[in-house]
Design a protein around this nucleic acid. Structure first.
Lengths: 251, 251
DNA sequence: CGAGCACTTGATCGCTTTCAATAGCTGTGG
DNA sequence: CCACAGCTATTGAAAGCGATCAAGTGCTCG
């Protein structure tokens, strides 16, 4: 099956200057000379949807940034219960400087391209130039905030609110990527299966399916297929998510 | 009531060299000259148990480290549901460089002493000397790992497993602080009320109480009072927590 | 001694899980 | 072209765990 093979994505970028994640990834603050150094040490790797990238407890020989696609960090208990603890979207950083052993399983959720750096040279560069380390700190603090928002969802939100919250996140990202002006209607494709959503939301896949059906029947979301979502009224969705409304604009 | 008043803790440390968190806080990697600079800008602040330290959405005028005591980061939904999203123990850092608006409510859980820095001078120092920034990145990455462990607990663990997991964390900390050699029996004081535990664990206080009672009746924990815990068999507790057993030693 | 607070315990309710069957979609091969 | 396998998703019925509502206990402090 195609899903089991690495496949060559479009990784023939002329250089970092044209990279789609140039201003959001770890390299965002780099000057031309630093970028050139990174350029020399980078390698692209591609993974098909479903492929493992790293296993918990094993040494990950590289770190890197997501260029295209989506990857998931998951944790699994001995009896098989599984919880997704992070979703890596384009520009997100994978791997931890200063620690060679991965803390979590990493899997490609969709077809995926990573911009990888060997651990040692990258750590040397971090020590030498502050810009990369600064940016990484900034990104890590953002991730920590996101993880804490997620803890509220997992600890206190109802199944319905969890689904709505996930939709809000995906809608927000869709708006950001398309650089669209804030409008009330948004459409996007769910990059996750029902099972992956369940793993993310701390629910079972049946509950995910049921709650989506209900939101659909009430007109909060409109679905052309099981993966194509349209949100007719974002304010309504935000209410369902149980978040403090931030005025409704996906700022 | 005493709980509403600031009270003077023992903050008359001669200097950073004698500070109890000297080798674990943000200043851990600093040389003597850098330490002197921090010494000039630091102020101690004390809070009584229950006092607020910062409110979500308001500007926090300082950042700092926990010296003594325990603080909690919490998030509250409009209808009052509350989730603790972080527990700040001695040496943990509070506040986010580069962001003036607090993302979460911060409250003193026990009587508390903070070693505070004005935001601006601290940020200037971070930009000038890499050691502080390096250490902060390290600490932030550790916190992110801890947050992700917590997401597994909130998303997938049973009430019983959650209680056991909290006990494991507190037992582990108690062993670290007392520098004791790893042994099978550990005693410690619960720094949290049942309600605070519930907020941390994503449960109600009644469920917390019931599960503690059950663990007690089964001999997994022994309690001299409602706050004094003894763990007669750590391996047993680890099993109950549902974590991969790491051999049982609280390494 | 009584007020206030933290905690415990009981009874019931309801949401989510579990178990189970069915539907829809996609690709493969006769 | 249709049948079928394999997978994803939906839906139903029943069970269970934790929440909710409600007393009651024990401790500390005035």
């Amino acid at each position: 099956m195609a899903a089991m093979n690495k496949h060559a994505a479009t990784v023939d970028h002329a250089g970092c200057a044209e990279c789609p994640i140039r201003h959001r990834a770890v390299c965002a603050k780099c000057e031309a000379d630093e970028l050139a150094e990174l350029e020399n040490m980078k390698t692209y790797r591609s993974y098909a949807a479903g492929q493992p990238i790293a296993w918990e407890g094993e040494t990950a020989e590289f770190v890197g940034s997501v260029v295209h696609g989506v990857a998931a960090l998951t944790q699994t208990m001995v009896d098989g219960r599984r919880q997704m603890v992070g979703l890596l979207l384009p520009s997100d950083f994978m791997g931890r400087p200063g620690r060679t052993v991965a803390s979590f399983d990493v899997t490609a959720v969709t077809d995926l391209t990573l911009c990888c750096f060997q651990r040692k040279p990258f750590e040397r560069m971090m020590a030498a130039t502050p810009r990369v380390a600064e940016r990484l700190l900034e990104m890590t603090l953002d991730e920590l905030d996101a993880a804490r928002e997620w803890m509220l969802l997992l600890g206190r939100k109802t199944a319905r609110e969890r689904i709505a919250s996930l939709m809000v996140i995906l809608a927000r990202r869709s708006v950001m990527l398309s650089q669209g002006l804030p409008k009330q209607t948004v459409s996007f494709v769910l990059p996750l299966t029902r099972e992956a959503m369940a793993d993310y939301l701390g629910l079972t896949l049946e509950t995910v399916s049921r709650q989506i059906s209900q939101l659909k029947s009430e007109g909060v979301v409109v679905m052309e297929s099981s993966r194509n979502v349209t949100i007719p009224d974002l304010d309504r969705l935000l209410e369902e998510a149980g978040d403090d409304s931030d005025g409704g604009a996906l700022a």
